[in-house]
Design a protein around this nucleic acid. Structure first.
Lengths: 232, 232
DNA sequence: CGCCGCCAGATTGTCAACAATCTCGTTGTG
DNA sequence: CACAACGAGATTGTTGACAATCTGGCGGCG
């Protein structure tokens, strides 16, 4: 299942941007497994760029928290333990609560309408039993609230954190019954923000993410209480 | 005043690590002015490393938010506007509140004693009228609470954010009367955390950082309501 | 029989040179 | 006199090769 990487020879204009985008996508999609070694020359060949360009991309991804690098020993896809996923989600709670408050204070009528429409689509995805679509709309909702809040700093932090736990989030969305529970919490957030009730929005956001943390803990204990090494 | 950079030829062992540390230090200390262009070849010569190594360091610093890079146009020291400083501090509020709560929940007797000692030193620095020392202890306090909280994710985010606004923080500490006000707020935080009162700790932290935001706003309007371009 | 040091392969870190792109001053034209 | 195209200089992006470091297995010694 952990196939090496996808191959995208290269576009015409950009150069190392291509490597960066391709690698990031490969990691997020899961084409390269967490813990897998990322050998510079090999990847450079696959992506059609030189080692230096790919190296720069690796540095960028390291800064994004998607790759771990140890000085003379190479890079590998970062593996986030369930405990780290919880810690990350706790930070997300703090930041998203901030965004929710600000969004509820400054939301326009158009934005409120957009949010409610998104809520409708979320409900639709649940009733269809389509967890992929739901997961996608979920991320879209959180992103949208960030945009409405105008807190670009918080949004960029949240994007980084989100990217690090997409795998966990995705896995959560597949748990039976989870989308239903999540939906109610999301609708509460939407209602509070669209209704311009900052305190409610904060409360609903905290409730939702605390529920996510609970689920992460449960999933973590169920799957891997201990974390041995990922193969060399 | 914006002298080019300090020169540290190079240590014996590390290589681009040297460039990274030296450049970061130069930016934080203020040896290179915000907005100043960072020409690769020039800096490489000053630091005694090759352009490739320095380039990697620039990429790292870009990820840390200390440097801005535009594709074919070079890098310059990032300038954070007063508005951005406020937004950053709002994020800090959210994250430090989280840390304060967690720290108040898990603080040990030894750690509580350390905090109180730090509080004493803060008071001492104020009574001495030593803003530099106060500013340093201030940062130490925030860092210490982060460590006690055990929220390593939040701490690393806070370190990034802090680094981006050291200049503003430092400038604030120099405003007359500011240390006195800040001291009271800090002591309240220390008391709440050391006294294991999470709710109080969160409240005190928010109060303190909101006060910082107010000061940032005031300083921002006083100094530069508009922000023209920093010289080429 | 087990442990220590050493050698070969592989991988990362570094370097100097080449090509592409941009900035800015100059020149020619309407 | 103003504007636009042009080109020299400077700066970044990229390339391929070289040196330093690490991994893992082999042989010698206790």
């Amino acid at each position: 299942m952990p196939r090496p990487t996808p191959g995208g020879p290269q576009a015409g204009e950009p150069a190392r941007t291509h490597a960066l985008a391709a690698l990031r996508q490969a990691i997020l999609i899961g084409d390269v497994a967490p813990g897998q070694r990322l050998v510079e020359e090999e990847l450079a060949g696959l992506l059609g760029v030189t080692r230096a360009s790919l190296r720069a991309a690796l540095i960028d991804l390291t800064a994004e928290g998607l790759v771990e690098r140890v000085p003379n020993r190479g890079a590998r896809v970062r593996v986030v333990s369930p405990e780290e996923a919880v810690a990350i989600t706790e930070c997300r709670t703090a930041l998203e609560a901030l965004c929710a408050v600000k969004a509820a204070q400054s939301v326009t009528d158009d934005e409120a309408a957009q949010l409610r429409e998104l809520g409708g689509n979320l409900a639709l995805a649940v009733s269809e039993g389509n967890p992929l679509k739901y997961s996608e709309l979920n991320r879209e909702l959180h992103r949208q609230i960030g945009v409405i809040s105008g807190q670009s700093v918080a949004v960029s932090l949240l994007e980084r954190l989100d990217a690090q736990i997409v795998r966990h989030q995705f896995q959560l969305a597949l748990r039976p019954g989870r989308p239903e529970q999540s939906l109610a919490e999301h609708l509460a957030i939407i209602d509070a923000v669209a209704g311009r009730r900052p305190a409610d929005a904060e409360e609903a956001t905290r409730r939702h993410l605390n529920s996510v943390i609970e689920q992460l803990r449960a999933a973590g204990e169920a799957e891997g209480p201990v974390s041995p090494d990922t193969g060399p």
